[in-house]
């Protein structure tokens, strides 16, 4: 266990994985059309979060807000600029390459594009069995094939497909293969980066149900990245809303959906089109675009689009603080449904 004292009330379950002050700065040399000056992008800016055993924490926000970068940092697929990631009390950012390789058994990733992330030249059996070989799981190739067959059955694919190649599968089937590969080593924590965004609507439900079944059977913890708020509502236990590299609101799912406290969360929820022609359309339409991360507004990053912004918002960045137990908000004017409609 980590000895650091937390000011927050202890979560019900002990966290399996915890990020503390995690940041990632990318520096790029060219800025197209802006004279080629050097610009730093704070893709993830001092993010702290935790995921309990068997829990799903969803991370939502618009493109470019740092969701994928955060997901990669959690698995140390990229090196943080600052901060640490504690898995079961052990700091992943301090592990040797060898130690990190061993850790891969426990932490895995599912990608948005099941096509791009599966090698086209290798059969399904090879794709799924390869990491098993590396970790010495199964005593022979034959035994590993049996394990692959079992995994395919678990993700709802006929085992006889194991000698086929990724291109011979539909998008939904490829995502099942990606899931089989991710669970092959028996991990406890999976980052799923927009796993259903590229799938047909009728196939999304199949993949979501599968992920939920596997979570229950194996006690998995998910960091589930999404831009689709309806999917998140369905699958998450808690939700973190990101804007320009920072968490602006985080809390239990129902609190976030019923009584969002941050104006950005409220606007995001109200902007989502719902398949209901009778829903009163009192949509909050934000003005303008998400600012460029190389050109952040001072104070609160959302102040340039916020209908409630006051002088203080442009001067002082609001810290992420507890509004209610387990519900944190970074807004000077945080309160339930802050934007009047």
């Amino acid at each position: 266990m980590n000895a650091q004292a937390s000011t927050r009330p202890a979560p019900v379950a002990e966290p399996l994985i915890r990020a503390e002050g995690l940041s990632k700065v990318f520096s790029s040399k060219t800025g197209l059309g802006f004279g080629g000056k050097r610009a730093d992008v704070r893709a993830v800016d001092t993010v702290s979060l935790e995921v309990a055993r068997g829990e799903t924490l969803a991370v939502v926000g618009e493109s470019g807000c740092g969701k994928s970068t955060l997901g990669r940092l959690m698995l140390r697929l990229i090196e943080p600029s600052a901060g640490k990631v504690l898995y079961d009390g052990e700091d992943l950012t301090q592990l040797s390459p060898r130690g990190m390789r061993a850790m891969r058994r426990h932490v895995q990733m599912i990608f948005q594009d099941p096509y791009g992330s599966l090698s086209p030249r290798r059969s399904v059996a090879d794709i799924i069995a390869e990491p098993m070989g590396v970790f010495g799981i199964g005593s022979s190739a034959r035994e590993r094939r049996e394990m692959v067959a079992d995994l395919l059955t678990q993700v709802g694919l006929p085992p006889r497909y194991m000698d086929r190649y990724p291109r011979q599968f539909s998008g939904g089937q490829r995502q099942r293969i990606g899931i089989a590969r991710a669970i092959a080593l028996g991990p406890s924590f999976i980052v799923a980066d927009e796993p259903v965004s590229a799938l047909d609507v009728s196939v999304q439900a199949q993949v979501i149900n599968l992920m939920q079944d596997l979570q229950q059977k194996r006690g998995l913890s998910y960091l589930f990245i999404a831009h689709d708020l309806a999917v998140v509502r369905h699958i998450a236990d808690r939700v973190a809303v990101m804007y320009l590299g920072r968490i602006v609101e985080m809390g239990p799912k129902d609190a976030i959906y019923r009584t969002p406290h941050h104006p950005y969360t409220q606007a995001l929820l109200s902007a989502a089109p719902e398949p209901d022609p009778d829903r009163p359309s009192r949509r909050i339409i934000l003005q303008g675009d998400v600012p460029s991360p190389t050109n952040m507004p001072s104070g609160c990053a959302f102040s340039s689009r916020c209908p409630l912004a006051q002088d203080i918002c442009r001067q002082e960045r609001p810290p992420l603080r507890d509004e209610l137990p387990g519900h944190q908000v970074a807004c000077h004017f945080a309160r339930p449904n802050p934007i009047p409609v």
Binding site: Q173, A205, R233, E274, D276
Partner: peptide
Amino acid sequence: SIPRLDDERDRLYQIPGS
């Protein structure tokens, strides 16, 4: 089969096949 913002179901209805 589509999840909704006011969704309280445990499990989504699932259309078999593709």
